[in-house]
Design a binder for these strands. Structure first.
Lengths: 242, 242
DNA sequence: TAGTGGTCTAGACCACCCA
DNA sequence: GGGTGGTCTAGACCACTAA
């Protein structure tokens, strides 16, 4: 093996890329099992240990899920345990939280400077803007505005959003084959403007948590830019540092 | 090997615990190299591969740092790269941020209900309360109030805090041998009260980011509970989701 | 050149799940 | 019982660092 080329990357990382590419191509769908390590090793012409290391990293990134005795599965936003992977909210009371999305608007537009930059597309590219309210335990807690590259979500409509019972990301995954894999968020504290305050049932000027997110699919491709305003009267945003 | 006992844990995890215990005992200090994998394997009577897996996990948790060709090192808050591991603030302008701590107060007290619960000590236990302002690029951006178990930080004083040039955690590490390894944070948006507003140089009622943190040392032992109020006029809190 | 971590392999056996 | 992932080992070789 040539281990001294300038673009050297270890075998297991090449295997990892091949697996990601297969996932991106839809060879194995979310929730389904991928082939066993033995089979993958034969397919890629490497030892099982090398496949294992590749899968280990993908499992650490929550892209795959290993289940001893059963197999290795493509992680899915359909999985109820995955809901709070991207929704870092908990009730101050400590009780369980039942999120329910209430779509308000779904419209076509052209990308402005900021949206274009965050979505990695050219300015003026067609995008879809979605606005919705997220209710937790029946109360409005989050108001979101999402910007999506239109070509990735063809035919997305308000009816489709209204008819869907589940998380947005599970809809994206099921209907458009787009799996959100990673996201970065920027948090600030802002004052509620009048219209927002009414929707969240708080007084105008109430401090809200502003959460700006860029979400990526396989291959670190950005596909969603969103801004959420969280009412933190009865909920807080949790984070783990290490 | 008895792999079927009810308290079964794999060898590499036992090795990991032994390494953590050695770290906790101060056998190897932050910034120093630990023995090579070969040496550790001989010491614990296992193969190098098993030590490697234990070290892999500790490196993933940012407790150890591997450097090819040099060795494996105990991670340290002295390392300038470690400053932003627990301070998730960036300038909106995108420029670099130079944090500087300005201690205000350091007093002894007895733990109330909440502090006791968060620090894992009995109510009434002696604690130290520290208040400080954190300046970024010269401007006051964060005001912190910290609650520390007194017996873990004997002799902590305002003078000591004032004389220290570096992060608080690097002080704790150098002077008291307490290394912060992990933390959980709860974020909310709140309105600035008068005294806080003055210190942060904002108007009363300005929305601030409230960050409540419990920090843990080796063995998941909580040793610090703090609440910070962040002015997010020119900075934001960053987070990675995966 | 010697020592460190990093990669890759091959094989054995264990733990778990399911038919 | 047979298949899956999980653990552990032993050995070879590569890549990086420092003296």
């Amino acid at each position: 093996m040539a281990h001294n080329s300038p673009t050297f990357s270890p075998l297991y990382r090449q295997i990892k890329d091949l697996i990601v590419r297969a996932l991106d191509a839809g060879e194995w769908l979310p929730g389904q099992a991928i082939p066993s390590e033995q089979v993958l090793a034969a397919r890629f012409g490497v030892s099982q240990g090398t496949v294992r290391k590749a899968v280990d990293e993908l499992a650490a990134e929550n892209i795959l899920i290993r289940r001893q005795g059963k197999g290795t599965f493509v992680s899915s936003h359909q999985d109820p345990r995955a809901v709070f992977r991207f929704l870092r909210l908990k009730a101050i009371s400590g009780g369980p939280v039942l999120p329910k999305s209430q779509p308000l608007e779904c419209m076509r537009a052209k990308a402005g400077q900021e949206a274009a930059r965050n979505l990695g597309v050219g300015p003026g590219s067609p995008i879809v803007i979605v606005r919705r309210v997220l209710r937790l335990d029946g109360k409005p807690v989050v108001i979101d505005e999402m910007y999506l590259a239109a070509e990735v979500f063809p035919g997305l409509s308000l009816e489709m959003l209204r008819d869907w019972h589940g998380s947005l990301y599970s809809l994206f995954e099921s209907r458009f084959g787009v799996r959100m894999v990673r996201a970065t968020e920027k948090l600030r504290a802002v004052a509620a403007e009048k219209t927002v305050a009414e929707m969240l049932d708080v007084r105008e000027g109430t401090p809200l948590l502003s959460v700006e997110r860029v979400a990526y699919t396989y291959g670190d491709k950005p596909v969603e830019w969103r801004r959420g305003l969280y009412s933190t009267a009865e909920h807080y945003y949790v984070n783990e540092l290490s």
